[in-house]
Design a protein around this nucleic acid. Sequence first.
DNA 1: GCATGATCATGC
DNA 2: GCATGATCATGC
Length: 449
Amino acid sequence: MEGTVYQTPAAVLRRGQEAIGIPFREMDKTGRLRSGKGAVGTVVEESWFGYTPNSDAEPDFPEAGVELKVTPYVRNRRGLRAKERLVGCLINYETEWDKTFETSDFCRKCGTMLILSYEHRPDADKGDLFIDHATLFRFPEEDLAIIRQDWETIRDKIRAGQAHLLTEGDTLYLAACTKGATAATMRRQPFSPIPAKQRAYSLKPAYMTRILNEYVFGARRDERIIQDWRLLERQSFEAVLLERLRPYLGWTEARLWAQFGGRSAAKSRLALLLGRMLGVRGPLARTAEFQSAGICPKTVRIQRSSRIRESMSFPAFRFSQLLEETWETSALRQQLEPTKFLFVVFREQADGQYCLERVKLWNMPAEDLEEVRRVWERTRALACGGVRLCPDGRVVRNNLPKASESPVAHVRPHGRDASDVDVLPDGTVLPKQCFWLNNRYIERILQAE
DNA sequence: GCATGATCATGC
DNA sequence: GCATGATCATGC
């Protein structure tokens, strides 16, 4: 309470446990919820623990060495999912480059956290929500190995004078997310004159989802690709993946199926094979590492002509939803920015068979994400009465952004068929659409080394 | 050969 | 039944 000094982690935990089940309305002594100012996290800090919120590099309870995190989750038909990333502390470009992981601001601040979880229900009044679990959390060694590599990736980019090129997709669990009133909040960086966006250490939504499921709610552990985390002391996660796959490079699809047994005609069959090659029994996307890092496998077939025939689709959007979003909150940005894509590349041989050529872990560079943003903004602008439809033989042409108009992305239909439609605010009916990454763009990514 | 619109096949 | 990842088909 007011003035209470919590000396030990156990004392902080005890106070956290006492908060379970109390509606935020009852907890709130300063009327924050009523005024709409400040999130529930602030209410818990101020009214329940009795201290002033800070975002500096010290943990919230310095004597106990514990940082407090109040974090929401949502339930859907597929279970429980973190509602948002968990933000730690600001990244001080001027000082962090000179540290080790152990002495970093992130480690000092978030090495031990008290995680208070609550279910976010969109239609409920915030005051009715309440904390349901209090968990003292330290990163398990196997996660820490990946987080340390992530931290080093961020530090190395600062050292290389590339803080302005940081993006969430650079890393697996720990990310450098933009932070500030606007993304335009700029900071100086020590090794380049170019100003960089202010960023904070954060745990990605996908990793938070696993923390909640596995460590807070005690769900069954997900299958691991890497059994022995000590491997990660010497090699990056990517290097371990590549090493496991090396024996199968050059194999045809038929030979791979012969090796692993079974067969599938599914369009995702190449991704299935990838799971077998990595020695995973269940779906690859369900493994702890892929799940936590939000790695998105994409199979790519390169034709004899060196061309990739198909562009890469994303889930269909609805124009009504597009108009409600800002770029910062948009589904498209969320699908791209924190995501690592695992390209599984098969190349067509002279006999027409496709052979595994390589795999590549990739995330979209910041400047290309900006180009996607322009395409997104043009689409959004057109949605307000600007879409023109023009029947042409058996197809209906439109004026949405085309592949020929951007080096990176375009918009195209993506429904079950022509009867699978969406409606514009002005009542115009057109086939469901989605954003695509241009096949030319994917070719460029895979050509670059 | 390529861009664009249209549709397929699977898994949940 | 539907969303999703992936591929097909037409016309220039």
